[in-house]
Amino acid sequence: MSKHPTTWNNQMIKRMNKEMVLNQVMESAPLSRADIVQQLGLNKGTVSSLVNELIEEDLIHESGTGESSGGRRPVMLLFNEHAGYAIGIDIGVNYILGVVTNLAGGIVHEKLKKTRDLSVHQLTSLVSATIRYLMEQVPPSKYGVIGIGIGVPGIVDTAGKVLIAPNLKWQDVDLKRILEKEFQCPIFIENEANAGAYGEKRFGAGRNSHSMIYVSIGIGIGSGVILNDELYRGSNGYSGENGHTTIIVDGKECTCGSRGCWEAYSSEFALLQSAEQHEHLAGASLEDLITLADAGNPAALELFQTLGTYIGIGIANLIKTYNPEQVIIGNRIRQAEHLIRNPVMEAVHSSSLPFQRAGLQINFSELSTYSAAAGVSAFAIEGFLKFSQRPLAGPGFPV
């Protein structure tokens, strides 16, 4: 028999209030119970009861006393960021980066594995092995591993299936189902650029922006869009494929099968392809080319100048489309910031109008290559802490 509607409503209201109290502690700690009453407008008894529950569940704890405004000094509350841990995995075209984070997003352990031309089975097996390794590194805590987030450079549907990832040569890979067979905790699969955008919004250069675009430039290009503080995924979850918008009609062939894509001119892959046209640069990596450019090599410097120009043209298109407060350039190309910043800015200015750039910030990632891994870890953490969206409590998890 289903619960009486009044009982269900009361439980849902309690969960929502509990979530509000926890979020307030996370955002504003240290603070007292009286501070929470004042800031949230809840009554004293409700706050006291919910705080006691959160302390019992080890999600917050008391620490010392604050300043008194008359009478007893208030006991201060802190968020317990070590009550559990999340695992974030960024699957790149030629690497897998895995991190363990606490509930505040702080990285406590990481593992980077270089990869090359692996099959779907080989790569998913390596992802599983990386997760198992990271699980062994998780510090003891009340809740252990509360979730696993995976960022993939491709189109991911809302059920966690990778519909297509051209640079990985993946199509219709049900990654969530594959991982759920082995790991008994919530699994979150997200497009890598969306994850990077969320990572920068939560922990990086986008913390103070309400609308921003994160441009992930590695072997390929993707973009993640934050509008009104929310990640914009599109009606079916497929937004952000700006790397495959056309910037040159009938231009270079792209890995997606089309021609003239932004990715074909502005990605790490495009840079390496251009380097192959120079005998003394052939076979060089991104890091090699940066070293050569820093040493004054004319050909390497010209490659980065051209790359920055094409990146700027694509960013100008994004500015015209979304009118964001901020654009953040991240992923592996972040290493070349000092070489591409000027041509990027010059191309943005020459390809857009002053009113379109008014108030706009163009920054490079604060999280460097960790943006996506931090972002998918944040999805796992938020899933764990959203009491109002958890219909039933998992084993040992708070309701």
Rank of each mutant, 00 (worst) to 15 (best):
V399P: 13
G144Q: 00
N342A: 14
S235E: 13
L97T: 00
I248F: 05
L318Y: 07
Q273A: 00
I315A: 09
V152R: 13
A358S: 11
G240V: 03
N17Y: 05
Y238N: 15
T158F: 08
G147H: 09
A300R: 13
S285H: 12
A373W: 07
H121N: 10
K252M: 09
H244P: 03
S274W: 05
Q38Y: 02
T369E: 13
E67T: 12
L179T: 05
H338E: 01
D58Y: 11
G218R: 08
N242K: 02
V100L: 12
L179M: 07
T130E: 13
Q11T: 10
F269Y: 15
D174M: 03
E62A: 12
C254I: 05
R73A: 14
P298R: 01
V344F: 06
P395M: 15
G224L: 01
F79N: 14
L22Y: 00
N194D: 10
I226W: 10
V108H: 02
K3E: 13
V249D: 00
A29M: 13
F203K: 11
V47E: 05
L123W: 11
E67G: 03
A264R: 08
R132P: 00
F269P: 01
Q184A: 15
Q335V: 12
L168H: 05
G296T: 10
L118F: 08
V138C: 04
I219T: 15
G41T: 03
E56P: 04
S28W: 04
L307K: 09
V152D: 09
I96V: 14
R15D: 07
L318H: 07
L50A: 04
N331K: 07
A86R: 04
K3M: 15
M16L: 11
P343K: 05
I148E: 06
L227D: 04
E276A: 15
F203D: 03
I150N: 03
Y310W: 06
A378N: 11
G383M: 08
I290D: 09
G218P: 00
N43S: 06
A336P: 00
A159F: 11
S211W: 02
H109G: 12
G206A: 07
F397W: 15
E81R: 15
P354I: 15
E180S: 13
L31I: 14
E230Y: 11
G308L: 03
M16T: 01
R202G: 07
A129H: 10
L271S: 14
E276P: 02
E62C: 08
N317D: 06
T130I: 09
T115P: 13
I91W: 05
C254Y: 00
N208K: 15
T321I: 14
N323L: 03
N342P: 01
N317H: 04
G251A: 02
I311P: 00
L301M: 11
E57F: 08
S365Y: 00
F203S: 04
L97N: 07
G251D: 02
T291M: 13
L281P: 10
I329S: 04
I60L: 01
V51M: 10
G199S: 10
S141L: 07
P139Q: 10
